[in-house]
């Protein structure tokens, strides 16, 4: 379980271009949750991820992982517990290495192998059904964007992190590949029991895959709704304790 409490992030503090990107922001991520984060450009979504990965240290507030408060946030240590995939497929893979070597690095996260042994990343690769498992000796720079992104997902989760962050990870992909990646995302969430936070601007994906949707605007949560399976009408989105929005 990961939680942040009353976090403020202010860019360029005290300067003419001071900008409060997160305003007294609190969020609790339960075990195995799949949260979709939406919001207009500049709302503060990526900034939230930077806090969660320790790339930014909050000006105030708390950060708790598995019940323990993290006092000194050190990015390269937090990254051992958190997997992240960005929009750009090149940022999550190592182009000069082979597919096999990329998988090795994923497993050896932080060089300490963090006890990951339950799941074979090769199985995940095979499960994707795009034939990468047969090309283990291929250098990753020779792959397509979608193939790289699939590999980036597997690298990000193969050390069984406490949480997987996805920052518009399907934005650069065609719809078919995006679907494949989303299926992998769900599989990671359901079968590996890793909580997922996904930022997206794609409303189709949001409606199709979400359990909980958080909307951020101006550095604050402006709505937080849950999806419930309804036998008669499919998926229903409900606000906290009350029935609100649309039926899909």
């Amino acid at each position: 379980m990961v939680e942040i409490k009353n976090v403020d992030i202010i860019y360029n503090k005290g300067m003419y271009n001071e900008k409060k990107a997160l305003d007294n922001f609190s969020l609790k991520i339960e075990k195995n949750e799949f949260i979709t984060i939406i919001g207009h450009n500049g709302a503060g979504k990526t900034t939230l991820f930077k806090v969660l990965t320790g790339s930014l240290t909050p000006d105030s507030g708390k950060y708790i992982i598995n019940g323990r408060e993290i006092k000194k946030v050190r990015s390269h240590i937090l990254f051992k517990k958190i997997g992240i995939v960005y929009q750009n497929p090149d940022s999550g893979v190592f182009p000069e290495l082979t597919i096999e070597e990329n998988l090795i690095l994923g497993k050896k996260r932080g060089m300490r192998g963090l006890g990951f042994s339950k799941y074979d990343s090769l199985d995940l690769l095979t499960g994707l059904g795009i034939g990468l498992e047969k090309r283990l000796k291929t250098k990753v720079k020779e792959l397509s964007g979608g193939q790289k992104q699939s590999l980036a997902m597997i690298i990000a989760v193969s050390s069984k992190p406490s949480m997987l962050l996805l920052d518009e990870h399907t934005a650069a992909l065609d719809p078919k590949m995006a679907d494949k990646i989303m299926n992998l995302t769900l599989k990671i969430n359901k079968e590996l029991n890793i909580p997922v936070l996904m930022i997206t601007h794609n409303m189709n994906l949001t409606e199709k895959y979400s359990q909980r949707i958080i909307e951020i605007s101006g550095g604050k949560i402006s709505s937080d709704i849950f999806a419930e399976e309804n036998s008669s009408s499919g998926k229903i989105f409900c606000g906290k304790n009350m029935f609100i929005t649309e039926v899909v």
């Binding site: 990015s75 390269h76 240590i77 937090l78 990254f79 051992k80 517990k81 997997g83 992240i84 090149d90 940022s91 999550g92 893979v93 190592f94 182009p95 000069e96 290495l97 070597e101 990329n102 090795i104 690095l105 994923g106 050896k108 996260r109 932080g110 060089m111 720079k141 690298i155 990000a156």
Partner: peptide, 24 residues
Amino acid sequence: TDFGILLRGYGGNKEGVTSLGVNK
């Protein structure tokens, strides 16, 4: 070695190793 793979990986993607939890 694993460290050597990391070193070669760093060559192609300097920020990527940070996401692996390695002090680049």
